[in-house]
Design a protein around this nucleic acid. Structure first.
Length: 217
DNA sequence: AACTGATCCAACCGCCTTAAG
DNA sequence: CCTTAAGGCGGTTGGATCAGT
């Protein structure tokens, strides 16, 4: 029997929501069967993450969200899930859609004057190696990982994100506290043969210079 | 009112990575 | 090692809606 495609019905949403609330996220391969949905696992996951999950923020992106998105995009490239991870309530799909919509309109985020041709700026992209969270990663057992997870769970980001004028310190803090940053630091340490502390200091310096450059422009 | 192009956004697709057997 | 299943991600599509004529 063919799995259903296309728009989700209210009944399907109801079944999926009930199932996730009862059993939690994960084990997506079991979801369609056990929830009684004639959908593929990916479709179920996508529907939950992008639409049904609690605390998903709807509506226009605030100015500070856009500002943060621009900076993260410049830093990370098209790593939408990472970018969305720093924008509470926003999904990677939201971020991706927002960005491609702006791109289609040929509106460079950096341009403020009307009728000015888009400036193409070279992106300085830091690419941490993709990682999957596994039980073997010690980060998951650390307090930092736990607190990060819980803060995402209860969406504890302040209702108004860091003000742009004061954004440099906030930005630095934001990035340096990020678990992915720690992963990146570990990668550098393993590649260079230096210790994590040394690599971390180097990263901190590079990032700090990057942010200062950004602020000057 | 009818048409048309632009825009939005939910959903699909294909690929990559990882873990398990 | 090799294979396979599953999770996850980014790119893309297509239907719905909006705005302009």
């Amino acid at each position: 029997m063919e799995v259903r495609k296309g728009a989700w019905t209210k009944e399907e949403d109801h079944l999926l929501r009930n199932y996730i609330e009862k059993h939690g996220e994960g084990r997506w391969h079991k979801v369609p069967l056990e929830a009684g949905l004639n959908r593929c696992r990916k479709s179920c996951r996508m529907r939950w993450l992008n639409y049904l999950k609690p605390n998903i923020k709807r509506g226009d992106f605030a100015e500070d969200e856009v500002d943060l998105m621009i900076r993260l995009r410049k830093l990370l490239g098209n790593r939408w899930s990472l970018i969305a991870g720093r924008l509470p309530g926003r999904t990677s799909n939201d971020v991706k859609n927002y960005w491609s919509a702006r791109r289609r309109r040929k509106t460079d985020f950096g341009v403020t004057k009307d009728n000015e041709p888009p400036k193409i700026t070279k992106a300085t992209i830091i690419r941490p190696r993709p990682r999957t969270f596994t039980k073997s990663l010690h980060h998951l057992s650390t307090e930092a990982a736990t607190s990060m997870h819980s803060s995402e769970q209860n969406n504890s980001w302040p209702s108004s994100s860091p003000p742009i004028e004061n954004g440099i310190d906030e930005w630095k803090t934001l990035m340096l506290e990020d678990v992915f940053t720690n992963f990146w630091v570990e990668d550098v340490a393993s590649l260079t043969g230096t210790g994590v502390n040394s690599a971390e200091q180097g990263f901190e310096m590079d990032l700090w210079h990057f942010i200062q450059e950004e602020a000057r422009q």
